[in-house]
Design a binder for these strands. Sequence first.
DNA 1: TCCAATTTGTTCGTATGTATT
DNA 2: CAATACATACGAACAAATTGG
Lengths: 251, 251
Amino acid sequence: MSAGGDGPVTVLARGEGLAAWRQIADGLAADIEAGRLAGGAQLPTEAALAARFGVNRHTVRRALAALAERGLVRATQGRGTFVETPRLAYPIGRRTRFSEIASKAGREAWGDLIAAGSLPADAPTAEALGIAAGDPILELQTVHRADGTPLSTARTCLPLPRFAGFDRAYAALGSLTRAYAEFGVADYTRLSTRIGARPAAADEAARLDLTPGRVLIVLTSINVDAAGIPIQATRSLFAADRVELVVEGLG
Amino acid sequence: MSAGGDGPVTVLARGEGLAAWRQIADGLAADIEAGRLAGGAQLPTEAALAARFGVNRHTVRRALAALAERGLVRATQGRGTFVETPRLAYPIGRRTRFSEIASKAGREAWGDLIAAGSLPADAPTAEALGIAAGDPILELQTVHRADGTPLSTARTCLPLPRFAGFDRAYAALGSLTRAYAEFGVADYTRLSTRIGARPAAADEAARLDLTPGRVLIVLTSINVDAAGIPIQATRSLFAADRVELVVEGLG
DNA sequence: TCCAATTTGTTCGTATGTATT
DNA sequence: CAATACATACGAACAAATTGG
């Protein structure tokens, strides 16, 4: 155990009012934010960091705890401490178009359609769309990815006499906006937005390539056409590990 | 197995295009949303519901699964199925004042101040407030309740030369808005809002009276004064079991 | 299936410097 | 100035989870 070895590789400013653990945390945070420590990378072990900075393992642990609290790293017992992949900023605005977001992420316009079908509206969907419960609606199930990683899965409901065949138009055009244009909807805006969060059920986790129990952000929104008539009720489930919502148009 | 009992108490419309489990789910959901089934109440057992609707227990289970997915009930093995307390709608707008929310919830204006102190700004807080890292800031830790139940806990940071003594003003006045008025800030608005979600750490869970691992909504926001100068960086942690954010001012 | 090595998580104890009372 | 409280830092040992043979 007696180290005949070298001193610390990185020297801290000791006894100058700045706690050692804070210097270590700030240094590692700068490495992460500058990309010198890439997302998913494994940090050196606590023992190795303690040696590198010439401090006790407790001091390193305190620094890592500060980073974990800021969401920059995640420690797993028996495995190690890993740099969290930065969350994609997902704008939520009055006329958010998913194509814009996708372009920022360098990816496709709007998600893969994994299922579509018509069915009678359940009570909350009917209320959202301003129709009677049991009226027919078109339900679309989609999954949205960036660079192959699923970010969200959505269930989108449209009132049915009006949008019969929308699923085919959507599949052909690959874009909600263009499919709406086919149905004479040149513009649409967001009427209401509600945001919650809960653990993922098994099937939801499977669709998003998550382990069950990981956290989902639940975003429930209603879109209306230029005349203010509801044309879409959507419940999106975001993998909270991968996405952060940015509310636009408030400030 | 052979039931010599009475027929179903509640009759469903069978063979008319509406699945039995959906009718059961809609009926129970209506009971919950109308308050006939109060939050926290235990539902009848699956067997009892099956008898009441004259269906197989599997059909009841499908209905309950639909309700659980919508967050209306929570089933616990060996205990039963319970009505979830309805989530408080928490508006997020350009000039959301917490006093408004509290009045809707029938409670105090703004949370209990549980800690306050000055410290050097860490990098992200400094960037949010437009100051240099290490500059002094005032940090307030608050817990916000409705009817005694904690809904959220927040860490609010203010730049320090300007707002020295803010904590005392706040403690005396009991309102952020009034405390700001003391410092010559007549109005302030929301500059940016970011929303994420993650499980609660042990200390966070303790502050919110949750079991560790329950889901938190993380809301990070920056407020600016009339001149556009940042006066506040806040990170609020909401108990996702109890709160749903409603984004205002988008549609 | 079992075992050993590795790594993080937790809990003792001890000591020191800095503010506050 | 003394007493106290608090944050910081170090040392040791063991528990718990993961990984790979």
